[in-house]
């Protein structure tokens, strides 16, 4: 499938639809975990260049806490959960019960694994909703964490697809904490281009 020519608004709309279902499940899980209301907005779905993808997450130089997972099974792809350092600190303090700072390079194992677990819960609930809807078998890999620049983190997930493509579909869900209008993180889902056909077939738009 030549992604530049054959992806239409219908395809992107369908992804938005399933993205919303995934996001709703993930928001519920995260709200339960943190015992406060977390909102995930209706995802933006776009076919974008790599630089545009970095801009979605606040720009290539912006420093974030990033949790990266691959998707395996009937579909291959990458998942990034990116959030501001202060938000990650608050989240871990709430979970672990002691103060925590991702600015500190000597981060404790405890905080890192707690953060990775949050990523796991988000992606797990998101993917299981997607899996129910599409009847595809989808599994996230073990999460990996990095505190670094947006460009440096996301480009790692672009290596494989960049051999053949200069653009990719990104399903971007913004996360918002109740009582603030502030975007408190991004959940990016990037299906690999070779999975587009099976994904659209399973959704009945191909």
């Amino acid at each position: 499938m030549n992604i530049n020519n054959e992806i239409t608004d219908i395809h992107l709309d369908v992804l938005k639809e399933i993205g919303s279902i995934g996001a709703a499940h993930a928001a519920t899980s995260l709200s339960q975990l943190l015992d406060r209301k977390i909102e995930m907005l209706v995802p933006n779905v776009n076919l974008v260049t790599f630089d545009e993808m970095f801009d979605l997450a606040g720009g290539t130089e912006r420093i974030v806490v990033g949790i990266f997972q691959k998707i395996e099974g009937d579909l291959s792809g990458n998942i990034f959960y990116l959030l501001p350092i202060d938000s990650a600190n608050q989240l871990i303090e709430k979970l672990v019960g002691s103060s925590f700072d991702f600015h500190n390079p000597e981060m404790t194992e405890m905080g890192i694994s707690a953060m990775q677990e949050v990523g796991n819960i988000l992606s797990g609930s998101y993917l299981s909703a997607l899996s129910d809807f599409t009847a595809m078998r989808l599994q996230p890999t073990v999460p990996s964490l990095s505190v670094d620049m947006v460009g440096a983190i996301i480009s790692y997930g672009l290596i494989e697809l960049s051999h053949y493509y200069d653009e990719a579909i990104v399903i971007d869900t913004q996360i918002i904490v109740e009582g603030s209008s502030k975007v408190d993180g991004h959940f990016l889902l990037l299906p690999n281009p070779e999975s587009y056909i099976s994904l659209f077939q399973s959704l009945g738009v191909l």
């Binding site: 790599f50 720009g59 460009g151 440096a152």
Partner: peptide, 23 residues
Amino acid sequence: VGIADMKIVKAPNIIKTSGLGSC
């Protein structure tokens, strides 16, 4: 300069690229 991009520059201008990871 963006990712997978190249440009040239003459003094006094300077040239920059951001967020190099494995790149």
